[in-house]
Design a protein around this nucleic acid. Structure first.
Length: 443
RNA sequence: GUGCCUUUAGCUCAAUUGGCAGAGCGCCUGUCUGUGGAACAGGAGGUUACGGGAUCGUGCCCCGUAAGGCACCCCA
């Protein structure tokens, strides 16, 4: 059986079979509808970019970037996310864009990471970003889109954790952590809910933070309560610390907007233990997580006011979200949250050796009526086989048109699930099929 | 990039201490040249992931590689 070449795919890359594609397509269209309902415009960009476009702002993550030299000797890389390409587009096409520019982008990205559940080397992100607005109104809008999108696919237990890079920085300053250690501090704090306060403290001390500072930071970062309550306490704790007042004002404004955008209060929380690893975030950061199954975060986001400027030379503030398609699908499948048909075909047409042309005409008529029709390509197979194959594919209905029916100007319409069948006049066939599909809620 | 576990027919899995590689489901053919999911009978399908090594002899032991899973790192 095996040919001379081994059929295989790269680690972390996958084929998407039809049933999987139907589910993916369904989720993508749900997201697209929400993005467009908020007035976001579609955008696509090349999968391959000059390496220097991609590098410089991802920090540690650059080691996960797919990079190579193309046939012309250029250093190139597969895009690592959709945010950096957006920044490049805004910088390149500023004359063609009206700021604030709201765009969505649904496309694959690549990371040379080790695969795990919900983690692949090729995966899709569904991003919605706003470039050219520094207002917390923009942040409130993207956070509300995140909440709407996750709710629309039925995720039961997600929470959007909200934090702020400059508040974390201020926490560090207030506790006596050197500014150069900011990145280390973020990474350590980010692990708080995973490895616990003691382990994080130990990690901080190991990189040169004093035990007193570490303890103080952790005390501040692990406070719990309502957003308003926490902000009040932070006002006191961070009084007089550089930049703290403005960052706290950001969050106060953001939390004031969220209810007006229709985000339920139990869908978000202020959680200062959230830091996020990407270096380009400068302000508020967001992350949506579910507790089951264990796929980590299903969506991540934040404000990155310096990224566009790194291409343009003048600052353009921006903020946005990224929905992780594969992880969301993992949850949807685990809990069977979306009912999707097994096949796109709605009705099969079975034929006999002598009625092939008539079968094709019937199929055409049904297609003209807007139905998805699977005309049998095996007239020499028995009708039994044709019906069996149609049923195995998951097609709900079959039309059987032999000489006997055709002479009477009709056809047999069979429900492949129940086995019932009825004679229907050819002129009424499309209507009957639609009626039955409606009854099955397949339309 | 690191550590641990796993890999036998299309799928799920057996195979005693190292001693002839099997079952169920699926697939193909027939009973059955216009009505599927059933039954019966028969059939195809294997370099035991790949490459080395030790042994009279390995699916089983040892080493390496690859892929998958889990945990790190990091992230969607």
């Amino acid at each position: 059986m095996a040919g001379e070449r081994k059929a295989r795919v790269l680690k972390g890359f996958r084929d998407y079979l039809p049933q999987q594609m139907i589910l993916r397509g369904r989720i993508i269209s749900i997201f697209r509808d929400i993005f467009e309902r908020h007035g976001f415009e579609p955008l696509d960009t090349p999968t391959l970019e000059y390496l220097d476009v991609l590098t410089g702002k991802a920090g540690e993550n650059e080691k996960l970037m797919y990079r190579f030299e193309d046939h012309g000797g250029r250093e190139v890389g597969l895009r690592y996310d959709l945010t950096v390409p957006l920044a490049r587009v805004v910088a390149m096409h500023q004359n063609d864009l009206v700021l604030p520019f709201k765009r969505y982008h649904i496309a694959p990205v690549w990371r040379a990471d080790n695969p795990q559940r919900g983690r692949f080397r090729e995966f899709w992100q569904c991003d919605a970003d706003i470039a050219g607005s520094a207002s917390m109104l923009a942040d409130a809008e993207v956070v509300s889109i995140m909440a709407e999108a996750l709710a629309a696919v039925g995720l039961p237990n997600f929470v959007i954790r909200i934090s702020h890079r400059r508040i974390l920085e201020s926490l560090g300053l207030a506790a006596g952590v050197a500014p150069e250690q900011a990145t280390t501090l973020y990474r350590a704090i980010d692990k708080l809910d995973k490895i616990g306060a003691e382990a994080v403290a130990a990690e901080l001390v190991e990189v040169g933070v004093s035990p007193q500072s570490a303890a103080r930071v952790l005390e501040l970062a692990s406070m719990t309560g309502t957003p308003e309550d926490l902000l009040d306490r932070l006002d006191v704790a961070l009084a007089g610390v550089d930049n703290a007042a403005a960052a706290l004002a950001d969050l106060r404004e953001l939390f004031a907007y969220l209810p007006a955008f229709g985000v339920p209060a139990d869908r978000y929380m202020l959680d200062l233990s959230l830091a996020r690893g990407l270096d380009y975030y400068t302000g508020p950061v967001y992350e949506a997580t579910v507790t089951q199954p264990k796929v980590g975060s299903v969506a991540g986001a934040g404000r990155y006011d310096g990224l566009v400027g790194s291409f343009l030379g003048r600052p353009v503030p921006a903020t946005g979200i990224s929905l992780g398609l594969e992880r969301i699908i993992e949850v949807v499948q685990e809990y069977d949250l979306l009912k999707t048909p097994a096949t796109v075909a709605q009705v099969a047409v079975a034929v006999f050796p002598g009625t092939v042309a008539a079968g094709a005409r019937i199929a055409s008529t049904l297609r003209a009526a807007g139905l998805n029709v699977d005309l049998s390509l095996q007239p020499n197979r028995s009708v039994g086989d044709q019906l069996k194959q149609a049923a195995r594919k998951g097609i709900p209905l079959a039309v059987i048109a032999g000489d006997a029916e055709l002479q009477a100007g009709s056809a047999n319409l069979k429900d492949l699930h129940s086995g019932e069948q009825e004679m229907v006049a050819l002129s009424d066939l499309a209507a009957s099929v639609s009626l039955r599909l409606d009854a099955m809620q397949q339309l």
